[in-house]
Amino acid sequence: MKKITIFLCLLAGYLIPSYGQCTSEDLYPSTPATSDNSGVAQQISDCVYAGDYSVINGLTVGGDYKFTCTWNDDTSVHRYLTVKDADDNVIAHGISPLTVNDITASSIRLHYSIDADCGTDTECSTATILTVLSCPLPLNAQLSAVTTTGASFTWTQGGSETAW
């Protein structure tokens, strides 16, 4: 009885496909992108295909990052993303936007697909990376009343922070 149960479990594992950790074969763009870790969204490319992957360097290990990929013809259509380290170990996967907390590698491969079934196409999509900062950047920074002894500096807070 144990042999039959083990056989059925192995057979089910073989026949029932698992999806969601897609590996793409085509590198695009051909040169790696480098994260500036500024908290401002950076464009990786404005024309990646589902079936491409991009190399992104300069990530801060332990940092939080948000990856997006949307179809250019309809930006409400989000692509499926798989984030892997340089050795092709899966770090995270899911539909865009995909937030990865406490990233474990400073260089990653970001794989693009239509869905968790790893579908491909030749339609342009725009991919971005954003470093999620714990203290967001101030907005609308302005300097006024500048004299030789002082100046007034004003800004709009970038999040819910209460102290600077």
Rank of each mutant, 00 (worst) to 15 (best):
Q21R: 01
Q21S: 06
D52W: 02
V55Q: 14
T75P: 10
T104Q: 15
A41T: 08
V48P: 00
S35T: 03
S134Y: 06
N89H: 12
C69F: 02
C47H: 12
T60Y: 04
N57I: 01
C124E: 06
V100N: 01
F7V: 07
A127M: 15
S144N: 11
T104A: 15
Q142P: 02
A163W: 07
D36R: 12
C118S: 11
S38H: 04
T31P: 00
V83M: 07
I91C: 00
I44R: 00
W155P: 01
D46I: 08
H111T: 15
L10E: 09
Y65T: 06
H78K: 15
G20C: 05
N37G: 06
L98I: 06
P97F: 07
G159V: 06
A50Y: 00
V90D: 02
L139V: 04
Y65L: 06
I4K: 13
E161D: 15
C9D: 13
L110V: 11
T149C: 02
T60R: 03
G150A: 13
I114R: 12
S45R: 01
A41D: 01
V77P: 00
S152W: 07
N72R: 09
W164L: 05
S96K: 03
V40H: 00
N101I: 03
T128S: 13
T68C: 12
L27F: 11
T147P: 01
T149D: 13
T162S: 15
Q21A: 03
S144H: 08
P32C: 03
S18P: 00
D115W: 10
D115S: 14
Q43G: 10
A50R: 03
L27K: 13
L8K: 11
